[in-house]
């Protein structure tokens, strides 16, 4: 005999089947979303690519063997994320380009990374502070993307988040250890924070592309990540005896729209040299 709700709800089995059915992936089914999705995927993949490249510049030059290895490992994770994001971007674009084509054959104005990640490494203080400010954002962003209505986006986020948890744990520890360290390490960390702070606001400044992706349930509105990011950053910076800077955080922006600092061109000149000089070279 059917239970009471079954008797009062018409065709409950059809409703249940409907709820179980996989929702259509907007990444694959909504053609007018494709330009925004391509742009959004490039923003994610370009930031991990450029930061991964910056970290790889430390390879063989780290101040201690363990730090050298750690930075190379994190670079590797970020390049892995890039392959997934730009790989999906290339599929969405349907223009016959591959992830490698996007990485190696676009000019600076076509890159959509945050300005924060293209800044030169400076000393270890700047490298670690940049990493921490980025990791805290990256962690929140990926956590939100795990709930994306696009299954393709969500599965990449789930994979990447597992690795980024380790990145954030490490960079938080080091910011605290060095901020609350010697007079010299504190001075350098404080200097790095002051220098980088004006670049952090860009992570939360949305535009039309972000609005379209948020509307479609594919990615969060960047502004909605700020509170969680600020919470993590405040907790760690206070424990590090550095404190949160008072100056404006949204002074430097434009990278996500393709307006970059001069540093990106030099970085690409090195990263893209081989494919530019010997097109199609493989090994």
């Amino acid at each position: 005999m059917p239970s009471l709700p079954d008797m009062t709800t018409p065709n409950v089995e059809a409703l249940a089947a409907d709820a179980r059915a996989p929702r259509p992936d907007p990444a694959e089914t909504v053609p007018e979303l494709k330009p925004a999705l391509f742009e959004g995927l490039c923003r994610l993949g370009d930031s991990t690519l450029v930061l991964g490249h910056r970290l790889s510049e430390w390879c063989g030059k780290g101040p201690a063997l363990e730090e050298d290895i750690a930075l190379a490992n994190i670079a590797l994770d970020l390049i892995g994320h890039t392959q997934m994001w730009l790989g999906l971007a290339a599929e969405v674009e349907e223009a016959g380009r591959s992830a490698d084509d996007l990485a190696y054959l676009r000019d600076a104005m076509r890159f959509r990374n945050l300005l924060l990640v293209e800044l030169p490494n400076g000393d270890m203080a700047r490298t670690l502070m940049r990493q921490f400010l980025f990791d805290a954002w990256h962690h929140e962003m990926l956590e939100r993307l795990t709930g994306s209505d696009s299954a393709r986006v969500a599965e990449i986020a789930v994979k990447a988040l597992k690795e980024v948890r380790y990145h954030l744990e490490r960079s938080s520890d080091l910011v605290i250890r060095l901020g609350d360290g010697t007079a010299e390490s504190h001075r350098r960390m404080a200097g790095a924070l002051d220098m980088l702070w004006p670049y952090t606001g860009e992570m939360f400044a949305g535009d039309g592309t972000d609005a379209a992706l948020a509307e479609a349930g594919i990615a969060p509105d960047p502004a909605s990540l700020h509170e969680a990011w600020h919470g993590i950053v405040t907790e760690v910076l206070e424990e590090a005896t550095l404190g949160v800077p008072e100056g404006r955080a949204d002074v430097q922006k434009g990278g996500r729209q393709g307006r970059h600092t001069e540093h990106l061109g030099y970085l690409l000149a090195e990263m893209q040299f081989l494919q530019r000089a010997y097109p199609g070279a493989e090994w």
């Binding site: 363990e66 730090e67 290895i69 750690a70 190379a72 490992n73 994190i74 590797l76 994770d77 690795e163 380790y166 744990e169 490490r170």
Partner: peptide, 13 residues
Amino acid sequence: KVSQHGSTPCKAA
């Protein structure tokens, strides 16, 4: 723990 990152991505030192 010496470092969270070891000789390969899957290992810590």
